[in-house]
Amino acid sequence: MMELVCPAGTPAALRAAVDAGAHTIYCGFADETNARNFPGLNFNRAELAEGVAYARRRGAKVLVAINTFPRAGAEDIWHRAVADAEAAGAHAAILADLGLLAYAAEHHPNLRRHLSVQAAAANPDAINFYANTFGVRRVVLPRVLTVAEITAINREIDVETEVFVFGGLCVMAEGRCSLSSYITGKSPNMNGVCSPPSHVQYVESRGELSAKLGGYTIQRNGKDAPAPYPTLCKGCFSSQDKVGHVFEDPSSLDASDLIPALAEAGVTALKIEGRQRSRAYVAQVVRSFRAAVEAVDKGLPVPPGTLASLTEGQAATTGAYRKTWR
């Protein structure tokens, strides 16, 4: 059966994921070492150890995302995170930075290393470099590849691949996107926050909702239209006499129908995005995808999904897996 890798922004979400049938849960410390450094989220050291124990008792594994890029002069924060993840009994650390990968390989050789999507390794040469140099055992592929490209990659590498199948959709070269920095000065790469909520403002007037980022209106929605989270890549802009979503529509990834094709492509693990979401989201999405991977494992069709309400823009896409974009 394909492995289901599920998000947990809090200990309650971790328990919800395990109880709903997650094989593996990924989470992060409550600081700038992980790419979901949002207020009220994430784990302290004791919570992580308890979470690992809870998962292990039920046959599940915990991965710790330490996938931002260390600040010069403050590397110790990231080094401690790697050491504490190993001490807590994590199955693996999800890393992106070359220096941190080298540090982990040298000082914590027994801690399994996964390559974060933040490293944007999107071809066999790059993946083989990470595998051969730092002993990376699994790579999380960027959300810019087609199924055919994933198949081609898997033919030329010896490590496991993990792909996103549900949740927020980032179509930029992850780890290298500067859109959030451009407006707010903060990025997922360095600070662990894309479009940080400290720079987000919603203004409702006569039923129209304006979503602002760093003081700029990114999107306006009428009375009954779904509300967006104002990330610059999903904003509505006017360009050459046209008004629209220049980069990307505010929709979420749902590749549940592609699970058989991804299995055929040699993918080991399916990843659900959403560490910033509630335990209700985690429980429902994990249950749905667990049923899907069990069905595929038995050679049955993927059960119809019921997750549209949970998606941004309340609309879903298969993203780059099927490139049907403008």
Partner: peptide, 25 residues
């Protein structure tokens, strides 16, 4: 799910979005 309620506009957030998120989480 709080985000889903917000996306569907069943829930409205004003003021300090960070504080509201921290409380929700």
């Amino acid at each position: 799910d709080g985000d889903a309620l917000f996306f569907s506009r069943d829930l409205v957030i004003d003021g300090d979005t960070s504080a509201a998120l921290a409380l929700r989480n």
